[in-house]
Design a protein around this nucleic acid. Structure first.
Lengths: 341, 341
DNA sequence: GGGCATGGTGGGAGCGCTCTCAAACCGTCC
DNA sequence: GGACGGTTTGAGAGCGCTCCCACCATGCCC
């Protein structure tokens, strides 16, 4: 463990002395200045300025019993997901909102089941005020693990059934977005609308499938094709689909990456988009959406906003510690119409 | 800012009472047990166990003046680099080593120049013991910014000339690795060896160019082609190269991603690798190297190890606060021979 | 057998801050 | 003019921990 970081920094005591007030008053000013008369506020502020005073975090934590830090728990297998712009955006939102709340982001990297003990100890050890985690796979033990530490937490993404339901989460309206996408294809006049789905062990993918079925109750099972959210799987799925049902004229694809793969297959097969086959994606990921030809119609979700929301929910959880757990939030999605459908 | 994280946790006082010793002795045991007789050590350990005691970090920080946290500063434009497996691996290494040192990773996300103030204040505010930053572009102001805060820090990657030279860094032996790659092409009998370079404002790319020139002192300038580390730029550069000098028979590419692009172009032009053109990449990135056809010969650098090294260097810096700054470390690279050269 | 190192232990101060509580102050009203 | 209510202010008590230092057993030597 490291050592002292700098020469002795000025204490509140010093500020108070310089401003000619008591430590208590100085403290009040530093923490907002409520109930202190303006002239004194100014004096203290000036002293702070002159001395370059910065509050000692540890001392403050010690008495307030809060430490102004939130853990973002990332499981090793999901780390690859940093390559996923989705995750990046979410972390960005979290980071921004945390900054706004004067809290810091402590990255907790879970190396695998063998690492669970360490994580639980850390989380339970009162180093952070709360935790943010992502529930990506149904078989993920992480949520349960964190749940056991009894630390306030919020999930990103709806946890699979079976997970602790008292833990609030933030998720996009995957099902509603899917419905809107499919309805859009219907309204365009598409008759045989297929769905290229994401991995079924992810609730988001499953919800999108459900949304598809909400609109197309009796859809031919042949029109449902499985992908794994990668571009290649989208291309493959599209080919499969075309082989099974050459008459498909509309496809709702579970994410943009797969949609771009599907687009590639369609192009290779000489099919026009949207004339022969209309395509709707999901995510509205700039890196994909901006580059496809034709531009991709897709369902947008505010990923960064979801990240921010996770933090807000956690903060609420922390501040109303006694009260009931805040409700989860489902953020709306919007259909962004471009050229592909 | 958040609130108390759990019900009152046991204090050292409680542990001491239960073990029938003084708080001082309990503290000694918790911190290693030096100079405490075995029977007492056992008693205290047992009390810790039974009570589920976890030291209060804030209280400890308050007196030790260390806070067991290290900032990893990531500039917004570089964040995209999380999609770069390079960065991911480096952060992984950092995370692991930090864990080994009982320190936590505080992620500091710099949103742009407007954010510099906040970062400087945070870094200077004694919240973390030190900082780790990446110096990726010559024009990056971040290193200078952190430097001004006088906080102990270590760079990942050699900073551009002009940066604070007293700050130690960890970098791969880019120049040496490049030399080895080019020499390998020479020994294979290649006569016209080209280089597809990375962005010149990155020292790593420049160093690789220099290594190329070390071996091929009088290389035809036409044999040097500029890329930007993306797959597409590699493909484009290879095409350009082929147009300018159809007689190239060997290419050293500044990273694997560009090499895979170059490979694509070569395939499209009907050229055999390595028979017609031999190819050597840089990085040994699994995701690329494993998928190319033929398998890519490349220069490996131990990226995760570099991350760990950054942490070790920082720890040394922190522990020998008085002494001279530790020297920077250049980690060796190794040529991994596969099929492409 | 008393003096003296030696290593083990406990007492207690204090890290820098917040927060309670009582004192001091002000203006107002009877 | 004094009592009273309300607002500011300051004194002081900790928060939980580490670490200095005095203390106390030992064991050893002369």
């Amino acid at each position: 463990m490291p050592e002292q970081t700098a020469g002795s920094r000025p204490t509140l005591e010093a500020v108070a002395a310089r401003a000619g007030v008591s430590r208590a008053t100085a403290s009040r000013v530093v923490n907002g200045g409520e109930g202190v008369r303006p002239p004194l506020v100014d004096k203290v502020r000036q002293a702070v300025e002159e001395l370059g005073y910065v509050p000692n975090h540890a001392a403050r934590s010690l008495v307030t019993r809060r430490n102004g830090a939130v853990a973002v728990v990332i499981a090793e297998p999901e780390m690859r997901i940093f390559s996923d712009p989705f995750f990046e955006q979410q972390v960005r939102g979290i980071s921004r909102e945390l900054t706004a709340h004067d809290s810091q982001l402590v990255l907790l990297w879970v190396e695998g089941p063998g690492d669970h003990d360490r994580i639980a100890r850390y989380l339970g050890g009162g180093h952070v005020d709360g935790a943010l985690a992502f529930s990506l796979h149904n078989d993920d033990e992480l949520p349960a693990l964190i749940g056991r530490t009894k630390i306030p937490m919020v999930f990103g993404g709806r946890p699979a059934a079976g997970a602790d339901l008292t833990v609030p989460y933030v998720d996009a309206d995957n099902r509603g977005g899917a419905r809107e996408a499919v309805r859009h294809l219907v309204s365009r006049g598409c008759r045989n609308i297929a769905h290229i789905a994401g991995p079924r062990d992810q609730t988001s993918a499953q919800d999108r499938i459900d949304g598809y079925h909400d609109v197309l109750v009796d859809a031919d099972p042949d029109l449902l094709c499985q992908g794994d959210f990668t571009e290649a799987s989208g291309a493959r799925a599209m080919a499969e689909l075309l082989d099974r049902r050459p008459d498909v004229d509309g496809v709702f694809v579970s994410n943009d990456l797969m949609a771009s793969g599907a687009l590639r297959t369609l192009r290779e097969r000489g099919l026009r988009v949207p004339e022969d086959v209309a395509l709707v994606g999901f995510d509205d990921m700039v890196s994909v959406v901006g580059t496809t030809e034709p531009a991709l119609t897709t369902v947008r979700q505010d990923i960064e906003g979801m990240g921010r929301l996770m933090v807000r929910l956690l903060m609420r959880l922390l501040n109303e510690s006694g009260g009931a757990a805040p409700a989860s939030v489902i953020t709306p999605t919007t259909l962004v119409r471009r050229a592909s459908a």
